[in-house]
Amino acid sequence: MKRYQELPIGGVIPGGATPHLVQTGGWRSGKKPVFNEKLCVNCLLCWVHCPEATILVERSQMRGISYDHCKGCGICSQACPTGAIVMVAETNDEPQMPQQKAGEEVCV
């Protein structure tokens, strides 16, 4: 880890969107959001409300959910006006994480 002389001052982390760097999928316990593309109108309210880097967006289109980052809070399903995201029980035999390497996601 960096010495104090090497760190940017003031606790600043150069570069935004730091949730991409941290995999928080392991926090999920019980329920996970499931995305139904047919009902999605691409309003991106899920992207706005999600506290993590979970909602995968490409060229302003909702593309799915990163379970490496999803904490299972369910805010996206609450924010979704069309029922395109619903919380479903997660079975133990599903692999919860990790599926992607950190930093792979592109958030436009």
């Binding site: 104090y4 760190l7 001052i9 606790g11 600043v12 982390i13 150069p14 935004g16 969107a17 730091t18």
Partner: peptide, 24 residues
């Protein structure tokens, strides 16, 4: 040049950031 400011700093970083204030 986006930055993240005012982040959590746990025992792994807090001390170093305080030490920087000494230098300031």
């Amino acid at each position: 040049r986006p930055t993240t400011q005012g982040p959590f700093a746990l025992p792994d970083y807090y001390f170093e950031l305080k030490r920087q204030q000494v230098d300031a």
